[in-house]
Design a protein around this nucleic acid. Structure first.
Lengths: 147, 147
DNA sequence: AAAAAGTCTACTAGTTCTATATACTTTGTA
DNA sequence: TACAAAGTATATAGAACTAGTAGACTTTTT
């Protein structure tokens, strides 16, 4: 399961993605629109900023904005910044690898082998999907929904 | 990430799968072989028994065994018994659905839409993979490893 | 100077996970 | 029949993690 942190980050980035090229958006605006606790969202946006995804502007008229085009930001990137491993087993994680305590030999573990496949399938989808794609999907869904 | 409980369950079922058709295996044997705390494993095997996957035999010479052929037990089944949702978002889970608090309209949520795809890919792999397949993979890995 | 807005660090309450403890029941066998 | 082997069941403790809150600070605009 994704953490709330990751989900909030995705929501916020979609909002910021729609606004790409415009003037900065304030934390409080995103928080109230997306039903996210403001103080929590502050931390999350700070993380995304420190990861180089967002720029921030202080003071009156300040706020946050995307540094890059939303088409250049993949969903998997966001999971890694905010939530850690994508894989379902630590011994299978590409970016947060950890040895399984209970496993004698990783190289011959059948369970691990299956979850390598799961990881590959998941990473494929999430690295091929950008924030721009998420926004497009939303647009398409709204269109179909209102028909 | 899968819980320890789920991982231990998978390990235990592989052991029991290799033994399918033979005499029952004791908890303590599985626990020591697979480096699983015995008392914890007791609970897990009990859950798997209550779910109808295992039979148990009390008393001297007792132990656990698979009820069905390991080819008939899918990995996804085990995750659901021991660990709950396979999906990465509660609003996307087939067996443990929960509404997202922060989401206004599920039907038009772009983030959700992406994670439906991830869930489908994951469920496909894990429902097509049986305990027998895991055992076979292990066998193949061992063979390649020793060469 | 005052207000708006982001920054930074610490902390807490709650939950979940992992594991352990204890007492009990059933079964086989000496 | 007594005893030991083995599973059953429930409770509980400790650790780790998550989600959210608090407060003091800095920067920028008006």
């Amino acid at each position: 399961m994704l953490s709330k942190k990751t989900r909030y980050a995705l929501k916020a980035l979609v909002v910021l993605g729609k606004n790409f090229g415009g003037i900065p958006i304030q934390i409080s605006k995103i928080a109230s629109e997306e039903h996210i606790p403001k103080k929590f969202l502050e931390q999350i946006l700070l993380d995304l900023r420190n990861a180089g995804l967002l720029y921030s502007k202080k003071g009156s008229g300040g706020g946050y904005g995307l540094v890059k085009d939303p088409a250049e930001i993949s969903v998997v990137q966001i999971l890694r910044i905010t939530g850690g491993p994508v894989a379902l087993l630590p011994c299978v994680s590409l970016n947060f690898y950890q040895k399984c305590d209970e496993c004698d030999n990783e190289a011959t573990c059948g369970v691990r082998d299956v979850f390598v496949d799961v990881r590959d399938a998941t990473v494929k989808i999430l690295s091929e999907t950008s924030i721009a794609d998420v926004i497009k999907r939303e647009k398409d869904l709204v269109q179909n929904y209102s028909q």
